[in-house]
Amino acid sequence: MAGKPTLTVRLRRLAAMLRELREAAGLSKEDVSARTGINVTTLYRIEMAQARPQRRTLGAMLDLYEVPEKTREEAISLLTDALKPGMSQPYEGAVSEIYASYINFEAEALSARQYQTSTVPGLLQTFQYAIAVIDTSMPRLDSPTMENRAQARMDRANNLTKDEPLELWVVMDEAAIRRVVGGPATMVEQLNRLLDDTKRKNVILQILPFDAGAHPGMAGSFTLLDFRNPVDPEVVYVESMSLHHLVEGHSEIRRFGVIFDQLRAMALSPRDSARLITEVRDELLAGSGLPMPPAVAGRPRKTS
């Protein structure tokens, strides 16, 4: 058994399968340990997706559970897939274990519902904006690690353009588009990127305006991921200043789903959100001396 692996959808599915097979066989972990010689702690870690079983370990478990050949083949196939590097593999030296697991989950998700408090979501960031955010929030990182983290966000964005793209619904606090990150030029580029993303059929973007007042998302950002295969349960990735973690369990998932529904109901419509982003960009252009895009430069300015 190798050290603790980065979590993937396949590994989580294999862990759930082995737990269900053991319970269907009417065996406790202690029973399995006594009859196979596999340590109880090892069994616990395998069933919690905290460790990948070796092939002989998996074989011993399947033999004891007396599973049919089709189930055996499915379990072995899941283990084979779980041994393959996930999307996070190139960045695992630069990002946390939990974030690496999230990257792998996101790559296989059907849809994502995301609330973001003070910055643009990573999936929608430009490279320069990402560098500015990482440099500010993690000032002690060396340049190569910082650039690796930023590149991870750029590669994640491919989930929005692949053959079966991620369906993304974002509610973003108005602070995320008002706060100038990385300077006016970087921020204008970022706002233009958001406007381009609002034109995608698989992206819904809403701004939660300041005048909405107090709201249930003030505790921090979060993302709910749903998967194509119904056997893969939803997962929530929660972010805050002090920690970030993955949340599972029906009651917790439902709680975050209710919060997201409340937030999107309080937010501006997608059309009004795009209009606000455009206004913020134009104000930034006018105040910074940056050249106006042709469509903006030729537009009559409002007079008070």
Rank of each mutant, 00 (worst) to 15 (best):
G93L: 12
A94C: 06
A94H: 11
A94K: 10
V95E: 11
V95G: 09
V95T: 09
E97C: 03
I98Q: 15
Y99N: 10
Y102R: 11
Y102C: 13
I103V: 13
I103L: 15
N104F: 08
N104M: 09
N104A: 06
F105T: 00
A109M: 02
S111F: 11
Q114P: 10
Q114H: 14
Q114R: 14
Y115P: 03
S118W: 14
S118F: 12
P121T: 01
G122I: 06
L123E: 04
L124W: 06
L124P: 02
L124T: 04
Q125K: 04
Q128W: 05
Q128I: 01
Q128P: 02
Q128C: 05
Y129W: 13
Y129A: 05
Y129V: 03
I131D: 00
I131L: 11
A132V: 00
D135L: 03
S137N: 09
M138Q: 15
M138L: 15
P139C: 05
P139D: 00
P139E: 00
D142H: 07
D142I: 03
D142C: 01
D142E: 14
S143I: 11
S143M: 12
T145Y: 05
M146V: 08
E147Y: 06
N148W: 07
A150Y: 00
A150I: 02
Q151Y: 08
M154P: 10
R156P: 05
N158M: 15
L160C: 09
T161G: 13
K162F: 05
K162W: 10
L166D: 09
